[in-house]
Amino acid sequence: MIIHSNRRSVRTVPILTLASLLCVAAIPCAETCPDEGVRPVPATDVAYHVTTCGTGIEVNSGPIRASVKAGACPAYSIATPAHNERMAKKGYFTKRVGTLGVKLITYQCNSRWFLFIPIGSHCQVKSAVNHGEVPDIAQIPCSIGLPQPTAGVR
C-alpha cells in the first residue's frame, strides 16, 4: 500500500505542479490583461512651401497677353509611414517591436522639359532623411501569453 501510495504521489507531483503553474498563469492573465490593442494609422505626406515649378505658358492671343503660372513643387514634405497606434481593445496587449522613421523629403523642381511637360517626375526628390520617429507596435492576444516587462521599451 505504502509503495502504491508513494508511486501515486510521484505521478501526482508533476501534474499538480503543472496545474498550479497553469493556474498561476491563468489567473494573472484574466486579471491583468491590459485590454490594449492597436489601430492602423495610414501613411501621410504633407507638403510645405509649395512654389511655382516649370516653364509656364505665355498666353499670346491677338492683343491679349498674359502669363500663366506653371505647376507647383513643394520645398519639402513630411512623410509619416503607415503605423499602428494604441487603443483600448479587449483581450490584447501591445508590444513595441521596432521604430519607424518619419522622413523629411526635400524636392527640387525638374529642370528638364519638353514644351511645358517635365521629363521624368515633375518634382524630383533631392533627399529623404529621418527627422523623427513613430513606434512600431504590434498587438498580441492575452490568451497566448502575458506582456513581459522589457527594460527600456516605451
Binding site: G98, T99, G101, V129, N130, E133, T150, G152, R154
Partner: peptide, 14 residues
C-alpha cells in the same frame, strides 16, 4: 539596454 533609444540610433544611422 534601452531598446527605444537604440531604435532611434538606427534611424540616425540611416
Amino acid at each position: 539596454g534601452d531598446s527605444t533609444r537604440l531604435g532611434s540610433v538606427v534611424s540616425a544611422l540611416e
